[in-house]
Design a protein around this nucleic acid. Structure first.
Length: 568
RNA sequence: GGUGGCGUAGCUCAGUUGGUUAGAGCGUGGGAUUCAUAACCCCAAGGUCGGUGGUUCAAUUCCACCCGCCACCA
């Protein structure tokens, strides 16, 4: 038995996530966590909402709420959506919780002790009416190059030139629109990342198991050279900057930058979990306190790779303490909506809460993983969704369960038939199934989700193929003993298929296992080499046909959803 | 603009360390079957592997340029 620490990229607090966000980190992380638990391994699966930063403050202001109250509310919404999708987090934390504040301050002070922090004064635009410094993106004005009147502080959208906010003519606050602004001096902490460049590169060099996408992104950053990076901001909402345990002089109105404290929440979520459950979190996160045998796997979208392979490791390694570093990581591309972007502001696409209003989570889980954006962006269309769900879940798997359990109920008194001797066909089936289970297991271990889904589907199809040839409904008339073998084999296939389907479609798989009364100790992931793959159900064991597992998606449904969500 | 990626059957995608007939699922056409959610099973048709050049005995696979799409640029 091994130990797996699994984290998913933290969803930002600002609004419910869409299906692309789900498919790009939280869902595959859950599938893998479930797979590892079924194998009997010890798993700690952590996620949290990322709550600090300007966007949260602005969204709260727009909603007319205090930022803390806003985050409280949004956190509950996101947590409910995660539960709706059966995301099996051991803990779903919050970066605004005290554990993260304490750890972020701890890392900040450790980095300073290691000589990696420098305080510098720079010039920044201050909005007198807003009573705050303005982030680059929240200063607008006239471009000094092309006279475009709505240039942003970081870049002019008209001529494309990169700008410094202090260059803008007639600057104004994008927050309030006020032109009552001025340039003021402000001090910030800078993380001297170049000092860590060699250590990070050596670490990436050694990470030969990372996927190509992740390594190439990490090397690109390293090749360009790491730069000193500001890790504080002039904001009220966030982690206070400390020195020797007290608020750092001159930083009374500043906090750590959200990108600095957010990844630390991975660790802090462990601390939250420990506090909530009375467990020990350091045995998962500190190699000097029992975590040396832990395999740490991170899931994320491709936009987050650089932070996970370079920035966060700078924080971790720079602390000089034996924290757990990522061992394996899995990065995803984007799911697109009819070839374009999902967009919150333009209401393009389907969001997690809406999806659950339409269909149970298993439908979405299956489609999003069978079409996971692993090697490139993957297009989501309602038509493709309908076809995939109807074919794979309703016709191939659902119908297989239905046809054999109902035949058993009609002809064998709702019990696993006894007697009869398995023949060549069953031996061939067993060999085929064993090979496919081995392949499926390997795909899961390598986190190849599309391939795993395709292999599982192929197994389901092999079950249908077997039944077609064994044809117990024909044998029943001439050779009842062989019909018994066929039905018994078919029912065992159902049980096996459900066991193997648990990571992808946990609800439906659980229902099948329940109606077959498969005991808990037989629901674990099978060892591929075992001869007992098709022997999960004792002979004479009573079973009951389940209700239809997956109703088909009708054309009328697709038409209605297209109308509502504007696909096509 | 810079950097990186992608462009393979009607659709969504595999694959090719350069080498006989380029694969899967869906969709389409035909057949078989009747236990089953008109489901399942079998068979078939469909692609000059974005374009133009180059290297090579041989390129969809390597190189250059072009076109189109996408991401990132702290």
């Amino acid at each position: 038995m091994a130990r797996f620490l699994i984290t998913s990229a933290l969803p930002y607090i600002n609004g419910i996530k869409h299906l692309g966000n789900l498919a790009g980190s939280m869902l595959p992380a859950d599938v893998h966590a479930r797979f590892r638990r079924l194998q009997g391994h010890e798993v700690l699966f952590l996620c949290a909402t990322d709550e600090h930063g300007t966007p949260a403050e602005l969204a709260a202001a727009e909603a007319g709420q205090d930022v803390r109250a806003y985050c409280d509310e949004q956190h509950l919404i996101q947590r409910a959506a995660g539960e709706g999708f059966r995301l099996s987090f051991d803990h779903f934390g919050r970066s605004s919780n005290p554990q993260n504040h304490a750890l972020t301050q701890h890392f900040g002070e450790r980095l300073e002790a290691a000589g990696l922090i420098e305080e510098r004064v720079s010039k920044q635009v201050y909005s007198i009416d807003d009573g705050r410094f303005l982030p680059d993106r929240y200063v607008e004005g006239t471009c000094p190059h092309c006279a475009f009147e709505r240039a942003r502080g970081d870049q002019c959208d008209n001529c494309g030139r990169l700008l410094d906010p202090t260059d803008l003519k007639n600057p104004r606050s994008k927050i309030s629109g006020s032109t009552n602004v001025e340039v003021r001096d402000t001090a910030h902490l800078f993380l001297k990342q170049p000092l860590m460049q060699d250590r990070i590169r050596a670490w990436v060099d050694a990470a030969t198991e990372w996927p190509h996408l992740a390594r190439s992104i990490a090397y690109k950053w390293l090749d360009e050279g790491l730069i000193d990076r500001a890790i504080t901001r002039d904001l009220a909402w966030g982690v206070k900057v400390t020195k020797d345990g007290a608020v750092r002089p001159g930083f009374e109105n500043k906090v750590y930058y959200v990108w600095f404290d957010a990844p630390i929440e991975y660790i802090a979520a462990g601390a939250e979990w420990a506090e909530a459950t009375g467990s020990d979190w350091e045995r998962w996160w500190r190699t000097d306190k029992g975590a040396s045998d832990v395999t740490y796997i991170e899931f994320m979208g491709k936009d987050n790779v650089a932070f996970h392979t370079v920035s966060f490791p700078v924080t971790i390694m720079g602390s000089g303490e034996p924290w757990k570093l990522v061992d394996r990581l899995k990065a995803f591309n984007w799911v697109t909506w009819y070839g374009g972007k999902f967009s919150t502001s333009e209401k393009r696409g389907i969001f997690m809460d809406q999806a659950l209003e339409l269909l149970p989570s298993d439908y979405w889980r299956w489609y999003l993983m069978a079409n996971a954006p692993e090697s490139s962006d993957a297009a989501f269309t309602l038509e493709q969704f309908q076809q995939t769900v109807n074919a794979d879940l309703a016709n191939v798997f659902g119908n297989f369960v239905n046809r054999i359990t109902r035949f058993c109920a009609a002809k064998f008194d709702s019990a696993v038939p006894t007697g009869g001797v398995a023949g060549d066909l069953e031996a061939k089936l067993a060999a085929d199934v064993a090979a496919r289970v081995a392949a499926l297991t390997q795909h899961h271990e390598e986190m190849e989700f599309r391939k795993a889904a395709a292999e599982l589907r192929a197994l389901w199809a092999a079950g249908n193929e077997y039944l077609q040839v064994a044809a117990p409904w024909t044998a029943f008339k001439t050779d009842p003993a062989y019909a018994a073998v066929g039905v018994r084999t078919g029912l065992n296939l159902v049980a096996l298929f459900a066991v193997l389907a648990q990571p992808f479609i946990p609800d439906a798989a659980g229902r099948v296992l329940d109606v077959l009364a498969v005991p808990a100790d037989r629901r674990g992931w099978p060892a591929p080499a075992t001869a007992a793959l098709l022997d999960l159900l004792p002979q004479g064991h009573p079973i009951a046909p389940p209700d239809v597992l997956f109703a088909k998606i009708e054309d009328a449904d697709v038409a209605a959803w297209t109308e509502r969500f504007g696909g096509g």
